[in-house]
Design a protein around this nucleic acid. Structure first.
Length: 324
DNA sequence: TGCTATAAGTGCGGTCCGTG
DNA sequence: CACGGACCGCACTTATAGCA
């Protein structure tokens, strides 16, 4: 099993983590901006896409501009490794009772920005921590762009600046609510942050993790169908075993459509899952790229399908513990 | 300094093509 | 013919660079 301590060891040496709650208001001149420092170039196919989009999307004549300075090109695509799984058990200094893990939240693989900052969902516009905060009672940061203006979603947040907590506390709050964080892809080669550019991927032992945490009731794919496709690719046998069942929500049903279709009748339970099965939820993607969903839509989905059921499980676990 | 064009990020969905 | 994978364009927002 993966030992998660190294993930936390990173905090001690990373000055970025001292300003977790203020990542969007870094002083000018510090230049942490991901666009500028990203060491990789955009894949050719995407650049073409952008160009053709511009040509067709506007009817106003464009001002001819001089050639832009090319951003730094990288050498051969480096191999990157995901973070270790993180659960409440990682917080060894805490005196709190460690709750059983009921929900495993899976991303695909950390983005360039997340790797750089040694944190899950590190991109300031990624909705993950904002939604988690709204559902669990904290606020990630001020929610300001580098020019000091608020992000569009900031006016939809439930908590004000007084509720801002640093990253470690956000992580602790999430984990002590019974949620665990991990990625599907352990190692891969990827030029940039596009999931669709991932090659040579090595999956994490997610099945082993679930065996180690038998109270897990649901696995949530936080980046929509793309993350789910990697899971289907590498865990076919597990899917066929009948231990997993897709959520009743449409997106989950669609993502697992082909697999559901081929399920053996005895493992197929259209009315829901039995108590030993793990529900697979394909969530509305928290990535800033999933712009077709509003922040409110994403939060409502996550609250209804992930956080509320998870907190109920947590409550039930406390009741059982107190009775016993 | 402010405006504008372009690059970048990244998931979704459609199309095409190869394979069984 | 069905299926899966690769490819491509779209969606929307922010950051950056260059010009007036």
């Amino acid at each position: 099993m993966v030992v998660t301590r190294s993930f936390f060891a990173q905090f001690a040496h990373n000055p970025v983590n001292d300003q977790d709650a203020n990542i969007t208001s870094t002083p000018a001149g510090h230049s942490p901006r991901w666009n500028r420092v990203t060491p990789t170039s955009t894949p050719e196919k995407k650049r073409k896409s952008s160009g053709s989009s511009d040509e067709s999307s506007t009817s106003t004549p464009k001002k001819k501009s001089s050639p832009k300075k090319k951003r730094a090109k990288s050498g051969p695509t480096p191999s990157t490794s995901s973070f270790d799984a993180v659960t409440a058990a990682n917080f060894t200094k805490s005196n709190q009772v460690i709750p059983p893990v009921h929900t495993l939240l899976l991303g695909t693989h950390p983005s360039v920005q997340s790797l750089k900052e040694n944190r899950y969902y590190g991109h300031p516009m990624n909705a993950f921590w904002w939604i988690a905060g709204d559902c669990l009672g904290f606020r990630r940061a001020e929610g300001l762009k580098t020019n000091g203006e608020p992000y569009g979603f900031a006016s939809h947040l439930r908590y004000n600046e007084s509720q801002i907590v640093p990253y470690e506390q956000q992580l602790e709050k999430l984990c002590f609510s019974g949620f665990a964080l991990w990625d599907i892809v352990k190692e891969c080669q990827r030029p940039g942050s596009l999931d669709s550019d991932i090659t040579q991927e090595v999956p994490n032992d997610i099945r082993g993790f679930c065996k180690l945490h038998p109270n897990i009731k649901r696995i949530v794919f936080s980046n929509g169908g793309t993350a789910c496709s990697f899971f289907k690719k590498h865990f076919k046998e597990w899917l066929d075993s009948g231990e997993l069942v897709p959520s009743q929500h449409k997106a989950s049903q669609d993502a697992f459509k082909k697999w559901t279709k081929n399920m053996k009748p005895k493992t197929k339970r259209p009315g829901g899952r039995d108590k030993h099965q793990i529900e697979c939820i394909v969530a509305l993607a928290v990535s800033p790229a999933a712009a077709k969903y509003t922040y409110d839509e994403k939060r409502d989905f996550w609250e209804e399908h992930v956080y509320q059921p998870g907190l109920k499980d947590l409550e039930a676990a406390h009741i059982v513990a107190n009775d016993g």
